[in-house]
């Protein structure tokens, strides 16, 4: 199957450089050709493990304490205690 790599990249907010496009197309096509070998099975795949259900935690106040600076220390760009991003509203 032909894979539209540029379209997938756009959906995933990626860009593939022109010189790498042919290699990506070839790789994606061989990967899809591999993974699509699946048998016809029918049924309901929900609840894979009813014996070990997930458990939601109690809705209680978190005891983890962080300062604003600790949490923002990794931000690539900061100004006046806020994360700086390009303009999002015209």
């Amino acid at each position: 199957m032909a894979i539209d790599v540029q379209h997938l990249a756009k959906l995933a907010r990626l860009r593939i450089e022109d010189d790498k496009l042919a290699k990506f197309e070839k790789d994606m096509e061989s990967i899809v050709a591999m993974v699509e070998q699946l048998p016809e099975v029918t049924g309901d795949a929900s609840g894979l493990d009813p014996e070990h259900p997930m458990k939601l935690r109690e809705d209680v106040e978190s005891t983890d304490k962080f300062t604003r600076n600790e949490l923002l220390a990794n931000a690539p760009k900061m100004q006046a205690g806020c994360v700086v991003v390009p303009k999002t509203v015209e």
């Binding site: 995933a12 990626l14 860009r15 593939i16 990506f24 994606m28 990967i31 390009p86």
Partner: peptide, 25 residues
């Protein structure tokens, strides 16, 4: 140039080829 451009450039420059393949798959 704008927010989308920042996302796309950041992710394209930040991820290696195998990660990009898996994300696209």
């Amino acid at each position: 140039t704008d927010l989308t451009d920042m996302y796309e450039k950041t992710r394209s420059e930040g991820f290696g080829d195998e990660v990009k393949r898996r994300i696209m798959l």
